[in-house]
Design a protein around this nucleic acid. Structure first.
Lengths: 189, 189
DNA sequence: ACGTCTTCCTAAGGGTCTTAGGCAAATTCT
DNA sequence: AGAATTTGCCTAAGACCCTTAGGAAGACGT
């Protein structure tokens, strides 16, 4: 029996690739074992169970996404930063639909705390530095931005915008214009 | 063999209830058969396969949601209508998380066309009548609103907002305030 | 070289989806 | 009403998937 050199890191990366190819929900322990040329049961020396594998995929995707967003917003401020953040987010979701779905998975509290989700929130707050929002408005705006980005990308990916000829890219840009305006003219309580 | 009185309508409703109880992805042909006290194979006289069942759940949810939104926005205009629409949407998603997940399922073109999705788009456009937006801005705004509502509700349901003490209800209201402002001051191209 | 830990295997149980073929109940036809 | 047809449910069985238990052989430290 020559060993296949499986490690939990290689498993996670392969699972992420598989997810981007066939969809997050179609990633299976069996398919992954096939890809590595080992029996399904062998993977259980590296992962606890299927849920554990998916959690690792989520952590990977959150970290990658945070890195890309960080690189995109570095050295930018104001609307520039907003557009860069949003663009990086949407770009990642389109290039890596399976990973993106993994990133949106529900994580239990401690796992979420150990994830890059905190960096995402921090970076969103960083964007808002250009808009001078005091708490609790800042938190409200963080939630609004997170919802907006995720919702738009999610509907776009699901094909919900394909029933109208209007260019989606243009709608995206206009939405960011409107978002920028909303942040600049944040309504007083 | 006394017949159990299974019909495709009763199956769909039971599946929807099951989804709200245990989650959309945990709705299974087997679980549904158990709930009706029949064997799994028996259900295939009523549904084509598991995907067919999920599609029926999606159509049910889309129709129910459209009905509730329609009732909510009737007789309202402007920000009133916006808040009523958004409130009905979010309320449905929270009362019926499984159905809501079903409604967000990807439908093939013809099924989507036969669904209540068109009514959703129409009603969103109706909201915008209070804001005097010409095409293509109107379509951009429809997409923005759809994304915003879905994204916020989706992140909230997934527990993404629970890492901060700020009242989610308050964030929701402030987000609608900001959205109203964005629509009133829609940026020129 | 020896013992230990790790990785992989076989075996096996349980769950889900789906099709095929049969019997009996319900419905329709004459 | 009785016969013919359709419909609803069943058993049986195949194809996957997830997971655990126990064993053998490679890798590694002493």
């Amino acid at each position: 029996m020559v060993r296949a050199g499986v490690t939990v890191e290689r498993l996670t990366r392969a699972a992420a690739e598989l997810a981007d190819e066939v969809g997050f929900d179609k990633v299976t322990v069996a398919a992954l074992a096939r890809r590595f040329g080992v029996k399904e049961a062998s993977l259980y020396s590296h992962i606890r169970n299927a849920h554990d594998l998916k959690t690792r995929m989520a952590l990977l995707a959150l970290a990658e996404l945070a890195d890309e967003v960080a690189a995109a917003i570095a050295g930018r401020a104001g609307k520039d930063a907003l557009v860069a953040f949003a663009g990086a987010y949407r770009s990642y979701a389109k290039r890596h639909p399976g990973r993106y779905a993994a990133a949106r998975m529900e994580l239990d509290l401690e796992t979420a705390r150990a994830s890059a989700a905190g960096r995402h929130a921090e970076m969103t707050r960083a964007i808002l530095r250009g808009y001078e929002l005091a708490e609790p408005d800042q938190t409200d705006a963080v939630r609004m931005l997170g919802g907006m980005f995720h919702g738009f990308v999610s509907l776009e990916t699901a094909g919900a915008f394909q029933h109208h000829p209007r260019d989606i890219e243009a709608s995206w840009n206009r939405t960011l214009d409107a978002l920028d305006a909303a942040l600049r003219n944040w309504p007083p309580a």
